[in-house]
Design a binder for these strands. Structure first.
Lengths: 228, 228
DNA sequence: CAAATATAATAGTATTACTATCATGATACG
DNA sequence: CGTATCATGATAGTAATACTATTATATTTG
């Protein structure tokens, strides 16, 4: 999809930032290096001060763009989900066969990012790692409901619902399309994490990726006639 | 199971604590009130100082029992998984029918805790909430591999493997028993979370609990003849 | 060229997650 | 019974965090 995306910009909820990081050079460097740093040292150890040092800028300047590191994480993950949604819609758009369509969709959302540097300052592979390791932390807080009301998770939610609709398109009698959709998304992140850190808790590894596991599980259920 | 557990003690990896909280009155109060507080204000906002105030004790005294709040969270979640494992083994032990056995197992691990105060100072219902909301934070860190090596997750891992074995017992040709087991455990926590905070991303609610969703999904797959 | 704007530098604050030290009160044991 | 040991408490201190506020300087724009 390299060529095609040349003039696309992924839109992110404006509340995640004070000043749009896409609007300046410093902003882009903040995003670029925050991805590198969070991937490297983890979200807990990541601070705006360290980031400032890394990019030869000042802590206080970073605060002009992002209110807090939580909001920056929101920005990054929203960007990721928006980007994934774009890839999903783009790849499944022309497909009329509903099963083929869902298969493609599952492939897109469960696959590890390989290389896709259309957005020069965003390393999608590392961003994928960050989502695997840190995304849960953006909603596992006491502020979820407030954040949710303000729309911080809307892209992610839309993605789950899109998947859910594709599931319904295959079997409108299946009683758990949304749970299945959310299981695919979240479960895939989890399987990727296990692959890296708890290999004894997953059957997924190099040749046997989460994608296959989920495609098998989902289609066995949707092709079955069991109406529970 | 009330009567039967009277003299049972759930064993937790000794590395999680400095001094066994079960060994003293203060220790038990620390555990009891940390559960109440973490549930109420969330792990991020929870501090040993606040806990000290709550129980009329001193911050420094709490540090005699737990090295850090991370370790306390480890202690609490290990206790929870140990307790769940006990319930699982206890409830499935006599069952010879493999399908009935797995059904029972899924029920145990995916169901919300109702009331089970055999351990007077531990509120299992709130602890269940804590596991839903905070457990991921104990492994989504840069220290996972080190912590894992030291055995902090052994009970949880054993639980996943037990489930995995029950799956194999039903269909030894199924290629993803461990992934299915880990999906049940983690996915169930996730569905419970969604129920509370993102109702639009799940089909689970009062009458339609995660248990049913997982039993249906798992057995449709294991009863099928599709060998992928 | 002046005004506005972006960034940098510096300082300061409350809180956190501890560590260290010393005091006190309870208990155990010889 | 007296003393040593141990558990707990009180206080102080530290480095780091997650910011806010203020002022200075450099850059852009009108």
């Amino acid at each position: 999809m390299d060529r095609l995306l040349g003039n696309i910009k992924i839109t992110v909820n404006e509340k995640t930032y004070i000043k749009d990081p896409e609007s300046s050079d410093l902003g882009k460097r903040i995003v670029e290096y925050s991805i590198l740093m969070i991937d490297e040292i983890g979200f807990e150890n990541f601070t705006f001060k360290k980031l400032g040092n890394q990019i030869g800028s000042n802590e206080s300047s970073i605060y002009r763009y992002f209110e807090s590191k939580q909001k920056l994480l929101m920005y990054l993950s929203s960007w990721y989900w928006g980007w994934l949604e774009y890839k999903l819609v783009f790849a499944t758009n022309g497909i009329s066969d509903v099963k083929e369509k869902l298969t493609k969709a599952i492939e897109i959302v469960t696959m590890t990012t390989v290389k896709d540097s259309v957005f020069s300052h965003i390393n999608e592979i590392l961003l994928n790692n960050i989502v695997i390791n840190e995304f849960s932390k953006s909603y596992l807080t006491k502020e979820v409901d407030a954040k949710n009301k303000e729309g911080y998770f809307s892209v992610y939610k839309r993605l789950v619902r899109r998947l859910g609709e594709m599931i319904i398109d295959i079997d409108e009698t299946y009683p758990y399309p949304l749970s299945m959709a959310s299981t695919i998304l979240e479960g895939s992140l989890h399987q990727h994490f296990l692959k890296e850190h708890f290999a004894s808790l997953t059957d997924c590894h190099k040749d046997k990726q989460p994608t296959k596991y989920f495609v098998d599980l989902v289609f066995t259920r949707l092709n079955s006639n069991s109406h529970v």
